[in-house]
């Protein structure tokens, strides 16, 4: 399996009126061709800004850490070092849309209200494919058809506000896919939808990802969704990835206390009768990150004197798994 994207030591800071905050610290993950990485974590843990950094979509107030490496293997086999690209370069414009597509949580707000859906799909197509207007329009109609929009030939000339929520998100998927990206980033694409529609859109995305052989980063705050779509998972807490591994293994046998907590809080058929046990305590604000392990303020297994002082390293407790927790780092504990 070949590597599509590898991110190492991604650190993101923002200049704010209250000083500099660093909501993402030392994040490392990878996506292979044709596989789906699920990025899971509570709201505010830094999922969106991390993926925006991949497409260089962060605002001017943001800056990347000096050690940040984001290496992406383009469709033509060339390796792009995303962190070095300039904001207005041709490479970054080819990368945006053509190599990586992005879908957002709010399908309504993702479309401009003053242009038709067709206008925005055709724009994406013509930026990345050598097609005439007429060809691009035919291609766009095919694409809308493919994402399950009925009567695509008429829908294409409608505005986003004339469609239902589910249809809008399907249309947004069509926009992202029509440029032919090798990596699709979906930032909570189903969170804003009705429950029944959620499942349909989820199925659609999984099917399209398999059919087109795309890599995908699927962001969610719901581990249950991860089980349905992801091959691999990375669990994020307060700007750090605390655990990664194959989705099935992580869900069956979580190692990090935070992942264990998330799973315990998940409703499922056999826990419906029992009471769910949510993780105690509040997620701290990203500008008041706790010292040491960021999770120590809520961790039941914390090692006093260590966890609140020293940041745990990422260790490999068994092949294919990685976890950032002192419980699995005996050597480190011995030194510390």
């Amino acid at each position: 399996m070949s590597r599509l994207l590898s991110v190492e030591n991604l650190t993101i800071s923002f200049r704010t009126d209250e000083g500099t905050i660093t909501p993402v610290q030392d994040v490392t993950f990878a996506v292979d061709k044709g596989r789906t990485l699920g990025l899971v974590g509570e709201s505010g843990s830094g999922k969106s800004v991390s993926t925006k950094a991949l497409m260089r979509l962060l605002p001017r107030t943001a800056s990347l850490g000096a050690d940040t490496k984001m290496h992406y293997t383009a469709k033509d086999g060339q390796v792009m070092r995303i962190e070095t690209l300039s904001d207005r370069s041709r490479e970054i414009r080819a990368l945006r849309g053509g190599e990586m597509g992005m879908i957002f949580q709010e399908p309504m707000a993702s479309f401009s209200p003053v242009y038709t859906i067709g206008n925005q799909i055709i724009e994406a197509i013509r930026l990345h494919r050598p097609m005439s207007k007429r060809e691009a329009r035919a291609f766009a109609i095919d694409m809308l058809d493919k994402v399950g929009i009925s009567n695509a030939g008429a829908r294409i000339d409608q505005y986003a506000h004339e469609l239902s929520g589910g249809m809008r998100q399907r249309a947004m998927i069509a926009v992202a896919l029509s440029a032919g990206p090798a990596l699709l980033i979906a930032d909570e694409p189903t969170t804003a939808l009705d429950v029944t529609i959620q499942a349909q859109v989820l199925d659609l995305m999984r099917d399209l990802q398999r059919e087109l052989g795309m890599g995908m980063i699927f962001i969610t705050h719901d581990l249950g969704v991860i089980a349905q779509v992801a091959d691999d998972v990375a669990v994020m807490y307060l700007g750090s990835i605390v655990e990664r591994g194959p989705a099935r293994d992580v869900i069956r046998a979580p190692k990090h206390p935070y992942t264990q907590g998330l799973l315990a809080a998940l409703p499922s058929l056999d826990t419906l009768s029992k009471r769910l046990t949510p993780i105690p305590g509040e997620i701290p604000s990203p500008n008041a990150r706790p010292s040491g392990c960021p999770f120590h303020t809520r961790c039941a297994q914390k090692i006093a004197g260590l966890c609140d002082r020293k940041i745990p390293r990422e260790v490999v407790p068994e092949p294919g798994r990685a976890v950032r927790c002192w419980l699995y780092d005996e050597n480190g504990r011995a030194v510390a």
């Binding site: 207005r88 414009r93 053509g98 709010e106 993702s110 209200p113 003053v114 925005q120 947004m172 440029a179």
Partner: peptide, 26 residues
């Protein structure tokens, strides 16, 4: 600051054209 502008940027619309077509028009 609208999401639709970020979304357009994310599909590779060149910055000058993006500014005129999306935010400036409104």
């Amino acid at each position: 600051n609208k999401l639709s502008v970020t979304a357009a940027r994310a599909r590779g619309v060149p910055e000058g054209r993006l500014l005129l077509k999306y935010p400036a028009r409104l």
